[in-house]
């Protein structure tokens, strides 16, 4: 035993966190041990509070503190457009653009046959319930451009188009500031497909 039991326990818990290996866990643990008691108490309280007060928004399934999330509760948002994303962190990424004014729906994953994840493990039914309210006219599918993300997009399109909804897919292409010569064929091909008139 290299560590006192409480330190070993802390290291064990820290190593459970994503992206934290033994060395990072040790660095964080020693930082906590060296820092003031008030700072550590604030960290502990923040961890407890986030678990205590944060829950899923019953409408879009993003994380929220209140009954509805800020987006769903905002009457200024365009209720006719719903952007479907994989995870709550994707909502943050799209909100950062400042260019989208509609609502969201968080699926909670993507269809991944190799992992045994099908549509029934995702919040597809809840999306249908939202659409059934009658205000939605367009669904923007913003899943990742991986095989799983594309499969999920195809599934949603096949299900939603017969309902008379406009189903759109976010464009994929060159990253801003990227060099054309380093782009792969798929990305460049899609960029050419989705070209726009100037």
């Amino acid at each position: 035993m290299y560590y006192a039991a409480p330190i070993a326990r802390l290291l064990e818990e820290l190593e459970r966190l994503p992206g934290v290996g033994p060395k990072s866990a040790q660095r964080i643990a020693y930082h906590i041990l060296r820092s003031e008691a008030e700072g550590t108490a604030r960290l502990a309280e923040a961890l407890l509070e986030v678990k205590r007060v944060i829950h899923f928004c019953p409408r879009c399934f993003d994380f929220t503190e209140g009954d509805l999330c800020a987006t769903c509760a905002d009457p200024e948002r365009d209720a006719a457009t719903v952007c479907v994303v994989e995870e709550p962190r994707d909502v943050v990424a799209i909100e950062r653009t400042g260019g989208y004014r509609g609502l969201y729906h968080v699926l909670g994953g993507v269809i991944s046959p190799v992992d045994g994840v099908g549509p029934e493990q995702l919040r597809v039914r809840e999306l249908l319930d939202h659409i059934a309210e009658g205000t939605v006219t367009e669904v923007v599918v913003a899943t990742n451009t991986t095989v799983e993300g594309e499969t999920t997009a195809l599934y949603l399109a096949r299900m939603l188009k017969p309902l008379g909804l406009k189903v759109t897919r976010i464009a994929s292409g060159l990253p801003v500031g990227g060099d054309l010569e380093y782009a792969d064929e798929v990305t460049l091909g899609r960029a050419l497909e989705a070209r726009r008139e100037l």
Binding site: P119, A132, M159, L163
Partner: peptide, 11 residues
């Protein structure tokens, strides 16, 4: 799983 639900399923 290759067959998505009927269009009115869930509505």
């Amino acid at each position: 799983a290759g067959t998505p639900p009927r269009p009115d399923d869930g509505l």
